[in-house]
């Protein structure tokens, strides 16, 4: 206790890093087969291990990278790929806007560290933000580990390539879906949340079937958000803990 008082900052800093690593650990484990799968698929499409590594390190967005690789041709259609990436990652704008008031960071830290914005780290941070603010140490510990993990294992996947065998046989392709279901469950099962999930899932599935990727992401998300707005009581009481903090 005396030591805590001597340097409370260092103690909480370490505690935040530990909390970040603990929260992201299951995501990191689940991401390994997905990363290997991405590298292997990209290599099968003709990308070199170096190109796969550079893409994972700089883009660091699984959904957009899988979509890009799925439609990859040589030479690469730069504008088409950039536009598909924008469509798939447009959700980051909403996610960043939602998380930004809940993080304890300077503006510079925010701009640098939001490179680490991913569905997983963001979902875990939103959940943590229900109880306490998200610190830079917590966020960067999660993001850094997830980034290194994604980059390393997608590179390894590209090198190993066909040695991995059929990913469907070992169910690795479903790990991503199961991971997201687990993250969604973390947001509880209130009436509004259940309506949101049902509408978002239905619209995304229909749009994907009749129109195709990547339109299902934006349309499903927007439909779910609209449904939540309609399902909510018109003057819902303020969220007390969150108000008290801001």
């Amino acid at each position: 206790m005396v030591m805590d008082q001597a340097n409370p900052f260092a103690v909480s800093y370490r505690r935040e890093i530990r909390a970040g690593l603990r929260d992201i650990a299951p995501v990191v484990v689940a991401a390994i087969p997905i990363s290997l799968l991405f590298g292997a698929v990209a290599a099968a499409k003709g990308l070199s291990p170096l190109e796969v590594t550079v893409m994972s390190a700089l883009v660091f967005a699984g959904g957009a990278q899988f979509a890009a690789i799925e439609t990859w041709i040589h030479p690469a259609p730069i504008l088409t790929l950039a536009f598909a990436t924008l469509l798939i990652n447009a959700r980051h704008v909403l996610m960043g806007a939602s998380l930004s008031p809940k993080v304890q960071m300077s503006q510079v830290q925010r701009f640098l560290s939001f490179f680490f914005l991913t569905d997983e780290a963001w979902a875990l941070s939103e959940r943590r933000a229900l109880e306490r603010p998200v610190t830079t140490a917590y966020w960067v510990a999660m993001g850094g580990v997830l980034w290194a993990n994604w980059t390393f294992f997608s590179a390894l996947g590209a090198v190993l390539g066909s040695f991995l065998g059929d990913p469907e046989r070992i169910g690795a392709d479903f790990a991503f879906t199961a991971l997201f279901i687990g993250l969604v469950a973390g947001f509880g099962r209130s009436r509004v949340t259940l309506i949101t999930v049902a509408v978002s899932a239905g619209v995304a599935a229909l749009v994907h079937h009749f129109i195709g990727a990547p339109w299902h992401v934006a349309s499903g998300a927007l439909a779910g958000i609209a449904a939540a707005s309609l399902a909510a009581p018109q003057d819902a009481p303020q969220d007390a803990p969150r108000e008290a903090r801001s």
Binding site: F174, V192, T196, V217
Partner: peptide, 20 residues
């Protein structure tokens, strides 16, 4: 606020809905 709070589950579900 309800709409904003719905962003996380709505986005995550939309991404996986076709596979699921």
């Amino acid at each position: 606020k309800a709409a904003f709070d719905a962003i996380p589950p709505a986005v995550l579900v939309a991404v996986i809905a076709p596979t699921a």
